[in-house]
Computed example of a mutant assay.
Amino acid sequence: MNTTKELNTAYRLRHALDERTHELPENVRERLSSARKIALSHKKSSVEAPVAVLQPAMAGRTSAFRQQGEGHGFAWLGRMSVLVPLAALVFGIVGIYQYEQHQQMLELAAIDAEVLTDDLPLSAYLDHGFDAFVTKGQD
């Protein structure tokens, strides 16, 4: 849309200049004409200059597949290059979460097994004095 505005402005400007050209002296018109020819020659030479374009290695192969009528070739590969790492990341995070949950369950089961196989009654573990005794005994 911006290019359209620029083109319209250029056309209006050119039209306004063309309307007033007959009022200019002859030597000024000749200088403007030669300057315009020089500018156009520079413009044409810059447009015709080759531009180096970096193409992926598979670019030629996909166009060959399209010419043979085998569909879109490897076009799906571009879409999958985003989805595959994203899926791997999600599965990795879910796997790590499941592993941590399993390890926590095993630790709690081991603590429960130790408490149940001990000779002390459960009420001893609830006593605040016993907790102080255990911490004092460890020092």
Rank of each mutant, 00 (worst) to 15 (best):
A64M: 07
L89R: 00
Y11G: 01
A10K: 00
M58A: 09
V84S: 11
H15P: 00
V51Q: 00
E70A: 08
Q103P: 09
V82L: 03
A10P: 00
V94A: 13
A10M: 01
F91T: 01
A113T: 12
E48C: 02
Y11R: 03
N27M: 03
M105C: 04
A64I: 05
K37P: 14
A113S: 12
A39Y: 02
E107F: 13
S34P: 10
L13Q: 13
S34T: 12
S81C: 10
D112Y: 01
A75D: 12
L108H: 09
V53F: 00
R61Y: 11
Y11H: 07
R20W: 07
R14M: 04
R20Y: 11
E26I: 05
L17M: 06
Q104E: 15
A59T: 05
T21K: 08
D18W: 06
A57T: 13
R14D: 03
F65M: 07
I93M: 07
A52E: 08
A57M: 15
R29C: 00
G60A: 10
A109W: 04
R14W: 08
D112R: 01
H72M: 11
G95I: 00
F65G: 06
M58T: 12
A52R: 10
H15D: 01
H102V: 12
V84C: 08
A88V: 06
L77Y: 04
L32A: 01
I38P: 02
W76V: 04
M58L: 11
I96F: 09
T21W: 09
Q98D: 01
L77P: 02
V94L: 10
R61W: 14
Q68W: 14
A110E: 02
L13K: 15
G92K: 14
L77S: 11
L83H: 08
I96G: 06
H42C: 07
G78H: 05
V28H: 06
R66K: 12
V28S: 02
L86N: 06
A35I: 05
G78D: 13
A75R: 11
P85L: 11
L40E: 03
Y97H: 10
R36N: 07
L54S: 12
G78M: 08
G69S: 06
R20T: 12
P50T: 08
L32S: 03
K43S: 13
G78K: 07
A87M: 07
T21V: 09
R79P: 09
S41F: 04
G71D: 04
P56L: 13
Q104N: 15
L24D: 13
F74C: 04
F74A: 02
E19F: 08
P50Y: 09
A87F: 07
A10C: 02
Y97V: 09
Q104K: 15
S81N: 11
Y97N: 04
E107T: 14
V53C: 01
N27I: 03
S41N: 03
I111Y: 12
L24V: 11
H22V: 14
L89T: 00
V94G: 08
A109T: 10
E107I: 13
R14H: 08
Y97K: 08
A57H: 15
H42P: 02
Q104C: 14
D18A: 07
A75L: 11
R61I: 12
